[in-house]
Design a protein around this nucleic acid. Structure first.
Lengths: 334, 334
DNA sequence: GAATCAACATGAAAGCATTTATGGACAAAG
DNA sequence: CTTTGTCCATAAATGCTTTCATGTTGATTC
């Protein structure tokens, strides 16, 4: 069933059918009804490919993320997909992994598929080495690029970020003000936001003259392997690194810290204070419940989509928007 | 840059360019090289919409799931996306929520977009009332439909399921054989697999004459709200429901059970044995670590994609495949 | 009452960028 | 000299959108 069949059965031209289909104004009520009746009767839907060819868009946005099964990224994808759909767009999902090469090839694939925009979900898309970010700038010449929780100053690249620096600074200060001096920063990523967080921690610690060589501890293992993280912390203690507080760059690391405390028979928060990051469901999964930094993911996503829709609508839009996070106090801090 | 430009610059017809592009045999090495050189020089990529129109496919599969941020579903989506990509297919993601209506509209949307297949991820797509499943049969007349962890006997519908009945039966038997008699089945879904699990539990309990009125306990709240689940269990105890073991229909419910035990100062597993379902990362997040049923999600996904690829390749494929699960024993059982 | 004009309604046809069926040209082989 | 087979160009088909041109209607003017 094509537009020709419909036009024939309705006794009008295909142009008129197209006009009816696309809600164009210039068509009389009578003709409109006649055409719609035929369309309904034959349950006709226009061919999406032909439509795409004519309009040069299929109203599709590419979503790239390293690992869609990651708790935080999955949540982001969920919000983004919902909000895109609400705006009449579909999403093509690309799980790229953490290597530059696969990211580049996914990017090219999406561009080849002629998506209307690409959203990079997560800060791991930005690399330390500037030249490694060229793939983003290149892509942005073809299609608008949105970064969630990462920033890059380039034409046609738009960023929505959480103020990780301040969140982490404030959280660290809070712990310091509670009387702790030996505070460990436990992290697992050099990503854009990873560095911002780290900087926030360092700033607060330095300000109070508490930053030591061993204050920053990198984990470096699998994102999900809680037992390995726990083991890693135990080794730290064995090496004689002293700590009464742990600020973790994400909730998984914080959870491992709680398990570590249990195994060492340390009381949380009396013997060990812990703060996590992301305020994910994990914060409720442990005992005691985790104090964690919430970075307002849904707000970020909402703003990202609003911005993208603005761009696609041909409007000028802010290139970088920053939202502040919030420390959600639960039971792992004093 | 179109195929015309390339053909002109290479001094051949567009048909030849197309043949080169699609690896057709009937083109001499010399011409092939000439065309490829021009293509590389101008970085030409064929227009995906035009290609779609000509081939009547854009190599895209629709993935429907109720909530992509759900731990288990997110994992499934991840596996599926990876394996589709490995086969040269892209995925359009649709988070449908749990209402029939939104599921139907997502389904229609995907069909309109002319995807080559649709994968329904999760057992919640199958309804108790047979007529509610008509939307699946209807869709299957247009495009092959794959069900993950659900089953429906209809033309062009293919199912890959975990043997939840047996998994649950075995797990229950295991707990009974450990000497427990007051065992609670704690669940939160009437979905296809939900019912299979429940039946497995009932079968084992009945076989041993242990099934009581209160053995089956439905939670009925938010999937993620651990505190609410914990509260719910406390109320049960207040009402005088006795239990020394809890078999939960998913890890979240099991986790809540652990928290409940903590709050009631019950020792796990001595005072309360707990078994979860899905063997998600949550199993490592709690203390003690959770005994849980693994349903071999990656195997299921792999098989599902293999089947789908077979169908798209025009082969006859099994309409229903069943894999067995495995109880992963950790520290919440005796 | 005829002439003028604008607004509205519709059709014809030209894109859009491919794939593919058909058939022609040419060289090698019989 | 015919046959076979390789290589390639022409043209049709895919199903829609959109511009341009044309036709229709009704109101306004003289």
């Amino acid at each position: 069933m094509t537009i020709y069949d419909i036009s024939e059965k309705a006794g009008v031209s295909i142009a008129t059918v197209s006009r009816v289909l696309n809600g164009s104004s210039n068509v009389s009520e009578k003709t409109k009804k006649k055409v719609l009746d035929v369309i309904n009767q034959y349950e006709y839907t226009p061919n999406a490919f032909a439509r795409g060819l004519g309009l040069n868009t299929m109203k599709t946005i590419g979503i790239m993320c390293a690992d869609s099964s990651d708790l935080y990224l999955a949540k982001a994808i969920y919000y983004i997909e919902q909000k895109l759909r609400a705006n009449g767009y579909d999403s093509i999902l690309c799980c790229t992994g953490y290597e530059l090469e696969t990211k580049m090839s996914s990017m090219n694939l999406l561009i080849t598929k002629k998506v209307d925009g690409i959203i990079l979900v997560g800060s791991n898309f930005i690399y330390e080495k500037e030249s490694d970010n060229k793939y983003i700038c290149d892509a942005a010449t073809q299609v608008p690029l949105m970064l969630l929780n990462a920033a890059l100053d380039a034409p046609n690249v738009y960023c929505v970020v959480s103020d990780d620096f301040t969140s982490m600074y404030d959280a660290t200060m809070e712990m310091i003000n509670a009387g702790l001096t030996d505070i460990l920063y436990y992290y697992n990523s050099y990503s854009y936001s990873g560095k911002r967080k780290l900087a926030g921690f360092k700033a607060a610690m330095e300000e109070k003259g508490l930053l030591k060589n061993h204050s920053l501890q990198y984990y470096g293992g699998s994102h999900e392997d809680i037992p390995a993280m726990t083991e890693h912390l135990k080794k730290l203690r064995q090496k004689g690194v002293p700590f009464k507080g742990i600020i973790a760059a994400d909730d998984t690391l914080a959870l491992a810290s709680i398990k570590y405390a249990k195994e060492m028979k340390l009381k949380v928060p009396e013997d060990l204070s812990i703060i996590g990051y992301n305020n994910s469901m994990l914060a409720h999964c442990c005992d005691p419940e985790l104090t964690s930094i919430d970075n307002k993911l849904e707000t970020l996503c909402q703003h990202l989509i609003t911005t993208l829709m603005g761009i696609l609508g041909g409007n000028e839009m802010p290139k970088k928007t920053i939202f502040s996070g919030e420390l959600i106090k639960r039971d792992t801090t004093l």
